[in-house]
Simulated assay, not measured.
Amino acid sequence: MDVTPGLGKRLQLRIKSHFQPEQSRDQLCVIIPNLPVQKEMEDYLRDRGIKIIRVMSPNSYVAKANTQSILKLHEDPLVHWVGEIPWNMKIDPVLAEKFSLPRLQKAAAHICPVEEGKVLIILYDKDDKAKVQSELQTEGLAIERYDKKIGAFLCQGCDSDNAVDIANMPEVSFMQAPRLIKASLETSVIVGMIDCGFEIDHAAFMGRSPYPVLYGRGWNVSGEGVPDDVWNDNSLGHGTHVAGIMLSRWHNVNLDGMAPRTGGDDDHRFRVVRCGRDTGDPVILYNVDLAMNTLAADNGALAINCSWGANDNTGSDYISVLADAYVWDNQQIYVVAAGNSGTAAGSINSPASAKNVIAVGS
């Protein structure tokens, strides 16, 4: 994507084709500021006639502004770049593979089946519904329904001839092949955890009919003890607590974890990476980057839990960028605690502030 300072080439062409001084129309654009995304920057943009649609991690805005405001904005010293997301970053790799289009990553259709013949077209701004609906019908798509909660059309009739034209619509945020979700009690999904350790011999994991004993495979990257010394939790006991929420198997409706069947045989083990030490501050985790790399190299765990975080809300710190890369490259799912800093803007910690992870808070 062209992010050299100034005005993006695609947006320049669109402005030139529409611009009439007496009729300055709104344009949808992406803004990358020179300052971190924060309330002061948002107020600064709004004061200049910019309507912010959404914030995109790690440091950009989707916004609407009239043509004259955009032409002024790209010369603003606090703004690095104003432009559009290219079409090939807005198409699901599964769709790109199906339509034989260039794609930026390998499709992962094997993880979850998709609804054949259908496409979910997600908008940046719900206010553009009528305009996009008309353009989709012009492209020959049959609209099955509109989801007003997320601002998306479920359509049929998308193919290799019209997919790029649709993705090139500035109002379209993403085109996705709808996944088919299958509810199952099977144990074939391998889950992982990065934490301060894990007491695998705890009674909560010994198994109660019909749930089996929990099988574990683990690594110790804390820098303390031997590499296979992973089954000891430090004095905090945090890892055992978290694993209990996930996988405990007491065969009691009040005590079972969320997925008590997972990790129930020798081939489908629970992956654990220990980052906590027995000496020093029990709250500190060490070498989290090595832990992520270990689970990526093992290529076993699909869903990885991280109930911890660091005080950085930019989404561009080292651990957040690393998590984004592993999710993107390895088709893993990182579920990360949002933090304990409250509900105010900017209170989500790293790596929950990364763009490709699932942040969880209450």
Rank of each mutant, 00 (worst) to 15 (best):
P170E: 09
D201E: 10
P93E: 07
Y124P: 07
E171F: 05
K129G: 04
V189Y: 05
N34V: 07
W328F: 12
I143F: 08
A310H: 09
G140Y: 06
Q331P: 02
M193D: 01
S347K: 04
D165N: 12
G346M: 10
H80T: 13
H80R: 15
N88S: 09
D228G: 01
L123M: 05
D256P: 02
Y215L: 02
S184M: 05
G300C: 14
L247C: 10
G280Y: 04
C306P: 00
D165G: 02
R261D: 09
I85H: 11
A203E: 10
T138P: 06
D127M: 11
Q27P: 14
A359Q: 03
I319E: 06
L120R: 15
D265W: 07
I15A: 02
N252C: 01
G244M: 00
S222M: 00
N305V: 01
E199N: 03
Q27D: 12
N356V: 06
A142F: 04
S17Y: 03
M258S: 13
K98T: 06
S209Q: 07
S222K: 00
Q20N: 13
G218F: 01
L180Y: 09
Q332E: 15
A296H: 01
Q105R: 13
A65N: 14
Q105K: 13
E115A: 15
I32S: 01
M292Q: 01
Y318I: 12
G309I: 07
P282E: 13
T262K: 08
V30F: 12
G192T: 03
G339D: 07
V114K: 06
R249Y: 01
P227H: 11
Q331E: 14
A183C: 08
V94F: 13
F99I: 12
A352Y: 04
P102W: 05
V79C: 12
L154V: 12
D76P: 10
L35Q: 09
V191R: 02
F153A: 05
A204Q: 07
R269Y: 12
T187Y: 08
T67W: 04
N88Y: 12
A296W: 02
S307Q: 00
D92Q: 02
G276Q: 11
M89R: 12
N59L: 03
Y44E: 14
A96V: 09
T279N: 15
S24Y: 03
G257V: 01
N305S: 05
F198A: 03
V226M: 04
K51W: 12
F205S: 00
H241W: 07
W308V: 00
D317F: 02
A344D: 15
V82Q: 08
I15W: 00
I304Y: 05
W328N: 14
G192N: 06
V273D: 02
D265P: 06
H238V: 03
G257A: 03
Y334E: 05
T240W: 00
G300W: 12
N340V: 07
I166V: 11
D147W: 15
G309E: 11
V230F: 08
D76Q: 15
A325R: 10
W328G: 08
D281Y: 01
E84L: 15
A65V: 10
N305I: 01
S100F: 09
Q332S: 10
N59H: 06
N59S: 15
A303F: 06
Y334V: 05
D233S: 02
G49S: 03
N168Y: 06
E139T: 15
P21Q: 13
E186H: 12
N168G: 13
A107H: 07
N34H: 14
Q331W: 09
